[in-house]
Computed example of a mutant assay.
Amino acid sequence: MQAAEKHYPDTLPAERRRGRGTASNAAGRFERHQREAVDDGWDLEEDLPPLRTEVALERPRHVITRNTSPDVGFDRSINPYRGCEHGCTYCFARPSHAYLGLSPGLDFETRLIARPEAPEVLAQELRKKGYVPQVIAIGTNTDPYQPIEKERRVMRGLLEVLADFGHPVAIVTKGALVERDIDILAPMAARGLARVGISVTTLDPKTSRAMEPRAPAPARRIAAIRALSEAGIPVRVMAAPMVPALTDHEMEAILEAAAGAGAKAASFIPLRLPREVAGLFRDWLAEAFPARHERVMNRVRELHGGRDYDPDWGTRMTGQGQWAELMQQRFALACRRLGLTRSLPPLRSDLFRVPPRRGDQLELF
């Protein structure tokens, strides 16, 4: 039997969370105490300001994160930022904010952490004796091209380091700011060192604005695919996540628009709602699309073995059952019709070279 749905009690008024993806700022799962707003008995009118984005700084001891997950095609990644201002309600990375003592809800999209010294630390790691280069993935947890990148430029600094070392990189983003770095990415792509995945969840601007409030509009992301493709950078369109009974009917249209803009490959992932994301998404859905709430959640549970989320390897990223199989068939047919492949050519690791630093003895031969 499905457990009773959890609804978070600390919902902020709509005027305070304008432009944000979630309504709650419930404490993370590692906190000893829960927060709940109560009436203090003072009947005073008080207009509180909208939530503003705060940015803290962190100096990392290392930036390359390793993983052994069989569900992803890389073993190392970098996160220039913690938290993400795009505010996507469905974001599977939200629970990671709990490790910082912050809420996976509104804290995740308003209390961000930038790592301005990450490029310097990355260079130190790449210079270590015995380092063996493999593709570094960036954007797999939080978006490297979220709005604060325009000012902070941490991602651009990382790309400059990777270009200097001849190191392969695979980027995932829904941020159109990636176009700014075409001057770095295009030469890297020409050497077989770079590719980009652009996430397009829907082509409907209203649905997008409700579901991912501070991300670029869908048409703007399609334009970014075109700009990158015209610059010779291999692009994969990522129709992810596909929300059943809300956006999954758009799969073919998304793939067609991306292929028309020059995308060479495609992928999709059904909606998955790990840990705190399930409750946050349910509450958002009840507020934004009340007429579809029950239908969407029933379909989500059909995809995940009767649960809001299936954490098992091999099925958590694909779903299971009739609807999962139907989505796979639709995806395969659309890709075949549009000439989209499931994978891009492998990136090169044999061009990796440690560049000399100022004062280093240069080799004669």
Rank of each mutant, 00 (worst) to 15 (best):
M251Q: 13
L126S: 11
R358V: 14
I78T: 09
D183N: 04
V243M: 02
E256D: 14
V72A: 06
H33C: 06
Q322V: 04
E15N: 11
R16G: 05
A278E: 15
R209I: 04
A261D: 00
E15H: 15
A215S: 11
G105D: 00
G175K: 10
R35N: 14
G262M: 05
E363Y: 11
N141M: 14
Y99V: 02
R301H: 08
D143V: 13
P345C: 11
Q329H: 06
G87R: 00
R115K: 15
V169P: 12
F331W: 07
G262C: 08
G279H: 10
G305F: 10
H304C: 10
V178A: 14
S96A: 13
P13G: 11
R180Y: 00
A266D: 08
N298R: 15
T11W: 01
P70D: 05
A239R: 06
Y145T: 09
K128G: 10
P95L: 09
P356S: 08
E212V: 10
C88H: 00
T207M: 12
V63Q: 10
R336A: 08
A332I: 02
F165A: 09
E160Y: 07
P345N: 10
E179A: 14
L100N: 05
A56N: 05
G314V: 03
T341S: 15
F268C: 02
P70V: 11
D40Y: 03
R156T: 06
P213D: 06
D107Y: 00
T68G: 02
P116A: 03
A93I: 08
D71F: 08
P270L: 07
D308R: 07
R295N: 02
I136K: 01
K128H: 07
R35Q: 13
P50A: 04
P187K: 03
A288H: 07
L51P: 06
L255E: 06
A332Q: 13
V237A: 07
F108M: 09
T207C: 02
V300F: 08
W284M: 11
E58Y: 04
G314H: 05
L126C: 11
W284H: 12
A291K: 10
D312H: 13
C335P: 00
S349R: 13
A217S: 14
H293R: 13
C88Q: 00
A189S: 14
F331M: 09
I78K: 01
D164P: 02
K6C: 05
L106R: 02
V121C: 08
P13Y: 12
V277I: 12
P104C: 09
R152F: 00
G157Y: 02
K150P: 04
T53C: 11
V154P: 00
E117H: 13
A114N: 03
